[in-house]
Write a protein that binds this DNA or RNA. Structure first.
Length: 830
DNA sequence: AGCACGCCGACT
DNA sequence: GTCGGCGTGCTC
């Protein structure tokens, strides 16, 4: 890619900095022969200092008078070539600056410690730069002003030398006793004097005698209580001079002793755990200077140990470039995968396994890490939850080639795996892959671009395929044995005579709500037999929908075919995807019944109901608000947990007999065309949650005939429903039959945002976009976010090439800030 | 992201 | 008369 005009001895390099800016061009460092390794870390002049960047490819050169790279930190890539290629492709389409992708997804090595020495180049006269300038001898760069160094550097008169130093880690250690501030080490106590100047009353004598025999005490109140006298007596004794305050050495807090004996600790959390005190307690000790944080040479970190070698089934998985493996249970899929991964590792090549969340990652590590050693290499775990030193150590093992099986979160995509032969993306449809901020990258999208760029095979593996994966060649394992019972709240028997209500709870009479009679019966059995149950509910039981109580119709968006959301303040129904709005109908447009707003039960309510139902049974809550300690459950004790989907990040309780979905409609009420797919995936995950057993899955719903549920009830495999959904989406022109992009327009003033949004729409139409391709623009349902007024606009095109062509119009500047999300999820990417 | 440059309100 | 608010633009 280097331009013909640039001589091969001084090529131009594109360097991405971990900032929301595009990659910039830099000239090769002077005196540096040969090409720079793609993906190596370099230090470049940046705003009169040095900044760390990554070489992402050959630069274009061009108009700028380029600065030289100041120094090269790595001899081999710190970031994988596939990642760089994938990120460049994504950046080109989405206009997310390459540097932002880098800062989001490079989880290690952005702040290396290095020694930096400088000297003047031979025969250079630096006197005009000032009195104190580099000489021909090597000196520490810190001896000079950074701005002065940069001025010399810009003239090409500076030789620089960088060498990486071992990383330091900061640890908490106990301060030596004599360094703890004196006021912390001493306490005021009250002690009796042998004799006083003024005679005492009888009561005072009693108080004094008690103190003489049992004292000293920490407080006057304590003295009075324990001596059995009133506080007045104590005060009198003191006034008559028979007792005094004295400073004595305090007993050190127990957590301090733990730190002295078991420390130092790398984190406050580790210290708090060892001392068995709350985190705030150790934070308080640090504030009061019982402990401090010191930099020490990082000891070799303890890394997660690989599991035992898994069962390996014959490798009959597809050989195509992109394939899928779904259904069955975790262990079955991992046994299939183990063979393929093992064979690739035995060839001396690398394998990357990516998980969307901590729970999936942990299961993948337990299920797959054992493949490495018999195949002649090591496995490393890499995710944001590792400590800095652990990340550094893991990355270096990958970089050195010592570890060729990488199992990690999306961050692991950037790993410098030399020769990847397979990228496995677990649960590719999971929303956990969507980066919540910054680049907004969808990890499987990036993985797919990486695979395509390097021609590395890519596999999607999970309980249920994403609809996008349906046409791929692949294997579907038979569903695990399951028992599903559906409580149909919409069945005629369940319809009591209901009057029209507004913003009240939906109470479908005689089935029992929110705990149906069927669910209550099974719960009682669970309690009687000493077994365990899990009930899943939304955290806050509110879903802004309206629904007909008679025919279950929920008003849909005419553009998007997803439920319209109720906005009480504006008295409107609004599509959260395209912004379409209409008034709230009083009567159902299908059957004429009065409409209701629907309110579902949250975890708190359900937990209270279960406690009433089973007063003898232990009831736990597990959601973001309240995470009860489930240890007794995992030790086999009987109990019921009421929680959100967060529960699935835990292992299934061992004695699990029942899983209840208290209101399955919650998963369908989401205004997003992926709601059905998500619901189906949840059901698949639930029936395969327990590694051996098949607990009863009881689903309470108004939509008993929903195809996702029927598919599970009727024992179809994990591909059946996504296939039907795939065809449905063709009819509605949704991905994968169309390419979507959400354009988010924000400004501090509403009028500006609105004008900007119109401007963007006009630019798109001017570029040939059709009305079918442009949905919106519309004000976002959330009217103001962090002081910004957001507007959005959805682009829906036949394919990605067309999308890219239309998005090209966004290269110019607009009156408002414009951002693009090419993998929108959850309707609204605000 | 930071940081500088650049125009309009409340104060030494 | 300044100090300082953050809006806009730039970084090879």
């Amino acid at each position: 890619m280097s331009t013909p005009s640039s001589p091969p001895s001084s090529p131009v390099w594109a360097v991405a900095l971990p900032l929301p800016v595009p990659a910039y061009d830099f000239a090769a460092p002077h005196g540096h022969a040969g090409p720079l390794p793609l993906g190596c870390r370099v230090l470049v002049p940046w705003r009169n200092e040095l900044a760390l960047g990554v070489v992402v490819g050959a630069g274009e050169g061009g108009a700028h008078r380029l600065r030289e790279v100041a120094g090269v930190l790595d001899r081999s890539p710190w970031v994988g070539a596939g990642f760089l290629a994938g990120a460049r492709s994504l950046s080109a389409l989405s206009r997310v600056p390459l540097g932002l992708l880098l800062s989001d997804l490079l989880g290690v090595g952005l702040t290396p410690r290095y020694q930096h020495r400088v000297r003047a180049v031979q025969d250079a006269d630096l006197s005009l730069f000032g009195p104190h300038t580099p000489t021909p001898e090597w000196r520490e760069a810190s001896a000079f002003e950074p701005a002065l160094l940069d001025a010399v550097r810009a003239q090409g008169l500076l030789d620089e030398d960088f060498s990486l130093s071992p990383r330091l880690s900061s640890v908490y250690r106990a301060r030596p006793w004599h360094e703890v501030p004196e006021e912390q080490r001493t306490v005021t106590v009250w002690r009796a004097l042998p004799i006083g100047p003024t005679p005492l009353t009888l009561r005072q004598e009693q108080a004094w005698r008690w103190l003489l025999e049992h004292g000293p005490v920490d407080s006057l109140g304590d003295w009075a209580r324990r001596a059995g006298v009133g506080s007045g007596v104590v005060m009198g004794t003191l006034q008559r001079g028979w007792a005094e305050a004295a400073q004595t050495e305090a007993a050190p807090p127990p957590a301090y002793i733990v730190l002295q004996e078991a420390g130092p600790f790398e984190t406050q959390v580790a210290w708090a755990q060892a001392a068995q005190v709350p985190g705030s307690h150790v934070a308080g000790l640090i504030a009061r200077r019982w402990a401090d944080s010191v930099e020490v040479l990082a000891p070799p970190p303890a890394l997660p140990q690989p599991a035992a070698a898994p069962r390996r089934l014959p490798d009959d998985l597809p050989e195509e470039l992109v394939w899928r493996l779904h259904g069955g249970r975790d262990a079955e899929r991992f046994a299939q995968l183990a063979a393929r991964i093992g064979r690739r590792l035995e060839l001396g090549r690398g394998v990357l396994v990516i998980a969307p969340d901590a729970a999936t990652l942990r299961r993948a590590w337990e299920g797959l890490s054992g493949v490495a050693e018999p195949s002649g290499t090591r496995a490393v775990l890499f995710s944001g939850t590792l400590s800095d030193v652990q990340r550094e150590e893991s990355w270096q093992r990958i970089q050195s080639g010592a570890a060729r099986l990488v199992i990690g979160s999306g961050l692991a995509l950037a790993a410098p795996l030399a020769d990847p032969a397979l990228i496995v993306v677990l649960e590719e449809g999971s929303d956990g892959y969507k980066w919540p901020s910054g680049s907004g990258v969808f990890v499987p999208d990036l993985a797919a671009r990486m695979g395509a760029a390097l021609q590395t095979p890519l596999a999607y593996v999970g309980a249920a395929p994403a609809v996008e994966s349906v046409p791929l060649p692949g294997v579907v394992l038979p569903p695990p044995r399951s028992r599903v019972h559906v409580v149909d709240y919409a069945s005629p028997a369940a319809q009591p005579s209901l009057g029209p209500l507004s913003a009240v709870q939906l109470r479908p009479g005689d089935q029992g709500y929110p705990i149906s009679h069927d669910l209550a019966k099974v719960l009682r059995q669970v309690a009687e037999r000493g077994r365990q149950a899990v009930l899943l509910a939304p955290r806050r039981g509110y879903s802004a929908l309206i629904r007909c109580p008679s025919c279950e119709h929920t008003p849909q968006c005419r553009n998007c075919d997803i439920p319209l959301r109720l906005h009480q303040q504006t008295r409107q129904l609004l599509c959260h995807q395209c912004g379409f709005s209409q008034g709230i109908p009083e009567r159902c447009e299908v059957c004429g019944e009065m409409m209701w707003s629907a309110r579902g039960p949250g975890t708190e309510w359900i937990a209270a109901e279960v406690r009433t139902l089973l007063p003898e049974c232990r009831v736990y809550r597990f959601d973001k608000d309240q995470q009860d300690d489930l240890t007794p459950l995992f030790q086999g004790e009987s109990g019921v947990v009421v929680g959100t989907q967060a529960l699935l990040s835990q292992d299934a309780p061992p004695n699990l007999a029942l899983i209840g979905l208290t209101l399955a409609d919650t998963w369908l009420g989401v205004s997003d065309f992926r709601a059905s797919e998500r619901y189906h995936r949840l059901l698949r995950q639930l029936i395969s949650w327990h590694p051996e057993r098949a607990p009863l899955l009881l689903v309470q719903t108004f939509q008993a005939e929903h195809a996702a549920l029927r598919s599970v009830v009727e024992g179809h495999d994990a591909l059946a429903f996504p296939t039907a959904e795939y065809d449905l989406r063709r009819a509605l022109s949704y991905p994968p039959h169309a390419a979507l992009a959400q354009v988010l327009i924000t400004a501090r003033e509403q009028a500006k945002a609105s004008a900007g949004a119109d401007e963007v729409a006009q630019a798109l139409f001017a570029a040939g976009a059709t009305p079918q391709e442009v949905l919106g623009p519309a004000a976002s349902p959330v009217t103001r976010v962090k002081g910004l007024y957001p507007y959005h606009l959805m682009l829906r095109t036949r394919d990605e090439a067309r999308l890219g062509k239309l998005l090209d119009v966004l290269n110019r500047s607009f009156r408002a800030r414009v951002r693009v999300d090419v993998t929108p999820r959850g309707g609204l990417g605000v």
